[in-house]
């Protein structure tokens, strides 16, 4: 397997030495470690593999009461075909992409601006506003759904991309994280840029943001994943199927999904795909990002 050749990404500086030393005492112990890790990983993959297997069967082979078979007795793309004929899966995918992209871009822009403002300027009310935003870290958005639904429908944003996206943009935690990072960026570069006559926005864009590349990327990726997987808010605000995001559409629209398991699992596999691809592309940033939560 090609995966085996990957070097451990997070190995510390003396990783090479450690491995060498470990090799010296390759023992029954480490064989057991490898074997059990491998078996556990397989167990962990079972649900996904089973979904994939079911999705590639004919509906008859996939239905209940059939013998469990991991390899489809007859390979079939029936499930996927019906799904594409229905078409709504594609609409939800587009909606999810649009909403998550709006959320990600707006979150990045608003939070980077705000973080920079708090980090580099003193202005009337600064302490108060910052404290208020920090307090927001503790407010559970799920407990606000009732009034929030009311506000968004009053603004006539029900069943619109903006109604889906805007409330998700308010992420105090991201402001907090970015501000802390900006605080640590040395001033020297900015001063140099300012001497060259660059304005504040220009400094932010061409000095601070590039210097903060990894953290801005991490905030962006996590915002995107969080928004893509958000269920409760779109469940409330997208009433028409044509405005639903993927998780909500899959969970709520009945038409046939309950009855046909191959189709059902095809929908699950296709629903899993976009983020699995995102994960493959940004694995390093995601793993580091999660690790950062604990290490900071």
């Amino acid at each position: 397997m090609t995966t085996m050749q990957e070097r451990p990404r997070t190995a510390d500086s003396d990783g090479g030495r450690t491995i060498k030393r470990n090799r010296r005492r390759i023992t029954a112990g480490s064989a057991i470690v490898y074997a059990s890790a491998f078996v556990l990983a397989l167990v962990w993959l079972i649900p996904l593999l089973w979904a994939l297997s079911t999705s590639l069967k004919t509906e008859t082979d996939a239905s209940l009461g059939q013998e469990i078979r991991w390899i489809p007795p007859e390979w079939s793309l029936e499930g996927y075909r019906t799904l594409f004929e229905r078409g709504d899966h594609l609409v939800w995918m587009v909606n999810s992409t649009v909403v998550s992209t709006i959320v990600t871009i707006l979150t990045l822009v608003l939070c980077v601006l705000a973080a920079y403002g708090f980090s580099r300027f003193d202005f009337p009310g600064r302490k108060f506003i910052f404290a208020a935003i920090i307090a927001g870290l503790m407010v559970p958005p799920q407990a606000l759904i009732i009034p929030l639904f009311d506000i968004v429908t009053t603004l006539n944003l029900g069943d619109t991309y903006w109604g889906l996206a805007l409330p998700q943009v308010v992420a105090p935690v991201m402001v907090f994280i970015l501000k802390r990072f900006f605080d640590g960026v040395p001033r020297d570069y900015e001063e140099a840029a300012k001497l060259d006559g660059a304005g504040h926005l220009r400094v932010l864009w061409s000095v601070i943001v590039p210097l903060s590349g990894p953290i801005v990327a991490a905030v962006g990726i996590f915002t995107f994943i969080g928004s893509w997987n958000n269920f409760l808010w779109p469940l409330l605000i997208a009433t028409d199927p044509s405005m639903m995001t993927l998780p909500v559409g899959l969970g709520v629209v009945a038409g046939g999904y309950g009855l046909f398991y191959a189709q059902n699992m095809a929908a699950a596999v296709l629903g899993a795909l976009p983020l699995l691809i995102v994960f493959m592309l940004f694995q390093k940033q995601i793993v580091k990002g999660v690790a950062g939560v604990g290490l900071k």
Partner: peptide
């Protein structure tokens, strides 16, 4: 300890976390 399979193992254990909830519940 099983660092040589690190990439594969991390992927296997972490991948479910990024799936949408309805995909997870459909499968289960």
């Amino acid at each position: 300890r099983a660092r040589k399979m690190g990439w594969f193992l991390r992927m296997a254990f972490f991948a479910p976390f990024i799936l949408p909830v309805s995909v997870v519940t459909m499968i289960w």
